[in-house]
Design a protein around this nucleic acid. Sequence first.
DNA 1: CTTCAACTGACAGGTTTATGTCAGTTGGAC
DNA 2: GTCCAACTGACATAAACCTGTCAGTTGAAG
Lengths: 221, 221
Amino acid sequence: MRRTDRLFDIIQILRDGRLHRAQDIADRLEVSTRTIYRDMDTLVASGVPVAGERGVGYMITQAITLPPLTLTPAELEALNLGIAVATQIADADLKAAALTLADKIDAVLPTQTIAEADAWKFAVYPFADATHNFTHMPVVRAAIKARQKLRLVYTSREAMVTTRTVRPLHMEYWGRVWTLTAWCELREGFRVFRLDLIESAEALPELFVDEPGKRIEDYEP
Amino acid sequence: MRRTDRLFDIIQILRDGRLHRAQDIADRLEVSTRTIYRDMDTLVASGVPVAGERGVGYMITQAITLPPLTLTPAELEALNLGIAVATQIADADLKAAALTLADKIDAVLPTQTIAEADAWKFAVYPFADATHNFTHMPVVRAAIKARQKLRLVYTSREAMVTTRTVRPLHMEYWGRVWTLTAWCELREGFRVFRLDLIESAEALPELFVDEPGKRIEDYEP
DNA sequence: CTTCAACTGACAGGTTTATGTCAGTTGGAC
DNA sequence: GTCCAACTGACATAAACCTGTCAGTTGAAG
């Protein structure tokens, strides 16, 4: 938990928009510069808009602030979190969607709360958990809808890499990982794939139709 | 990453809704029963609806499944994540809000996509990261809106526990932690509190009004 | 009361992760 | 060219975490 704290502290330091040398940050947080360089790597990989320039120092390159929203309090909180998570995602489409989603909800809700909402300003800063990998979500989701077969390069947990053609059927979110349930043409049976273990996913032109025994309804875990 | 994998495996095993003894799970995953008991702790703390009964075994107590949604693909993904996160939260209001939020979006979007959405079924299972603590969010948010003073019991990172009365002004989400910016009457100055380090938050009947130097606009990090 | 299996606490060993030191390299400004 | 500070890689050590063993306790069912 210590390291997370320090990463948080670094953002707080950078927040002023001014220039900071690794040495100064290191002194302030009582660690070595090497640790700061490593932390900066983590922050950049997490999507924090910080840039370092040799001979100069580190600076926040942008501040991401959203306008006030006008939801019911609890909904606002739920959406708040949702947007925060969605903006963490590397996928640009999803980032944009999270924002338009906010707009849509904003538009459909009664506007009477706008006035009082000005006291509730919030900002969302990207800070992805680099362990998550949502890269293949769009293509997988699209293939499920379009009933397109998928060619997957998949690394199993035993580090075996296989290439297979599957019929994508169903996605689930397990809080830590997303899974894809599919009928695997290589194994001739249902298989559950973890999205974060998919190396590459390519939608094939080949479509598939429901066949008894290969539908999601036929899947029994 | 190994441990996460095993937690995921345990859910997969429990998913069949049948009874499982710790010994059996331990054998299957090739770890000791002690490890399984520890894993079960983690799962329960994460909100996975699993219950153990002495002399009997472990069983999933409920399955949480949501009906199909009808958003644009990207929005669906964004919301998907948002709901997944929101349902992780211990706060019952927020859980409910996440669900009604989904309903509202569902209602306001064009219905033409409903037909094709049936191929896109998804389920969300709670699996909170136990390190997050959103317990005080509702009361803090409410106090900001109502301009009520808050009495905080706060544990600083140096493990110092203080009780203070603050004027809550502004909340921010930093991806890993939420912060509350407030004017602290104990320190006579602006302070930033991390929500996850707040022991207790109590809204006081006492209201506050804007005073020069104590408004969020006057805060300079 | 006995049995079963969930549960708990303490401790030791192993593994992984974090950090510091050091000795470099790189790119821009002057 | 020199200076500056970001950056990188390798290695050793220290701290944190994970796991197994063991010796218990607890609660329900028979």
